[in-house]
Structures are given as structure tokens and as C-alpha cells.
Amino acid sequence: MSEHIVIKRVSNFIIPFIQLFSLYVIAHGDISPGGGFQGGVIFGASIILYVIAFGMKDGRTRISEILTDFMNSIGVLLFAGIGLACVIMGGAYLEYTKLAGSAGEGHGSHAEHALHLAGHLGIYGIEIGIGIVVASVMITIFFETANTQDDD
């Protein structure tokens, strides 16, 4: 049969752009539509496109089962870790502004700046964590559902 040269070449060309776009969506989650979940879905879709175009074997060499499991745990740990860090610093769960610590106390513009930065970085870390989890879960689900047809 035909070798799907066109599909393979075009997928090759656009997959890096898709991956970068997904990272852009994650990073700009707090100032534009999107965020961790959407970016993670787009990243997972890029890997799925790679597997559809090149087959399961190539896909597994590029992103192994161990790596997706690892990413899965790292994402949850990042999310929970930031939340717990807020608790340790004396706030509620996911109360980002407490991450500023002693720099955020007082009333000057300096303290306000620190609070703002802490909030921003906190949201940023949460988005990255959610993105990693969603991407790895999507990839895992796709690999598993595509694989079940091997057995029969």
C-alpha cells in the first residue's frame, strides 16, 4: 500500500509548533484564555498525532511508559507541594500570597510587589503541574485504548 509520505512529512513539520503552542497556552494561562488543562490537552494531542502518523513503536521510543508514569506523579506532586507550602507558610491551602513570606509583610510598595510576584509564580507553578498531569494522562489513555486491539 501507499506509505503516507505526505501525512508523515506534514505531521513532522507541525508537531514542534504544536508543542511550543501548548507550552505558550500553559504559560499565559492567567492573562488569556487557556491554562494548564488546555495546554496539557494540546501537548497530549501532539503526541497522539505523532503516534497516529508513525505508529506505536516509534511513539514508545520517543515517550516511554516509565516517563509518562513519572510525569503523572511529578505533576500531582507539584500541585500538592505548592498547596502544602502555602499551608506551611501559615495560610490556607493554595493561598499563594503567603509564599512571599516575610517580604510580603508591611505596607510599602515593596511588599505589595512581593505579594504580586508570589501570587503570579504560585499560579504559574499550579498551571505547569496541571499541564503535566493532563498531558501524561491523555497520552496514557490513548496508548492503553489503542493497545487493547492487540489482544483479540
Partner: peptide, 24 residues
């Protein structure tokens, strides 16, 4: 941009499934 991308992936997936009877 995202929608255009998802549309493309859906079509490629259909082509693959139609020809091979499976997605991988």
C-alpha cells in the same frame, strides 16, 4: 488556531482507522 489543529488530527485519525482498522 487550536480548533484548526484538532480538526486536522481528527481527519488524520479517521484516515488511519479507515485503512488499518486501528489507531496505532
Amino acid at each position: 488556531l487550536t480548533y484548526a489543529l484538532i480538526n486536522f488530527i481528527a481527519t488524520i485519525a479517521f484516515q488511519k482507522y479507515r485503512e488499518m482498522g486501528r489507531l496505532d
